[in-house]
Amino acid sequence: MQNYNIMLAGFGGQGILFAGKVIAYSGLIDGRELSWLPSYGPEMRGGTANCSVCLADEPIGSPLVLAPDILIAMNLPSYERFIGDVVSGGTVIVDRTMVDVCPTRHDIQFSALPATQLAEDNGLKGLANIILVGRLLRMTGFSTLESLNIAVEKSVPASKPQMVEFNKQALTLGYEFLDPKECEL
């Protein structure tokens, strides 16, 4: 299978680290090598969070993703900070509710879905992050819906069992969302 170097970025509280954990767990379910590395530096105190996830078939060297082939950006500062680092041919997914941009790059696959809005409209408040993961699955096939559903079960804390079903709904919602292609490339 293909190797993926994934960067997820957004505000603290948007579930960036959790979304990264679900992606990482899907790698474990799929029997792949993987790493998950959060930003824990001073920037975290400033309200932004980002997270590097690597999926590969051989042991992972550096877990720090500097040239992502996948970027999920949930706010504008994160989008602006990382869009230039994405490798040519990479995939960029933004939460259009938070990041109202059209890409200036033409060498990437781009998807903007109103994840936060979709979450609110579907009674899944706070799960824009997982909607974006569902969309990523549809665009790249980095894992399977079955593996991601198991990953959700493994990642949701035991103290919040009711969240498993909501997360699964969010995954499906993102997976089935069809990009309106509002951005002309």
């Binding site: 474990l28 993987l34 790493s35 998950w36 590395l37 959060p38 824990y40 877990p63």
Partner: peptide, 10 residues
């Protein structure tokens, strides 16, 4: 180090 302490792996 901080990298090994903070990262997750199987």
């Amino acid at each position: 180090d901080g990298l090994l302490g903070q990262m997750m792996e199987p």
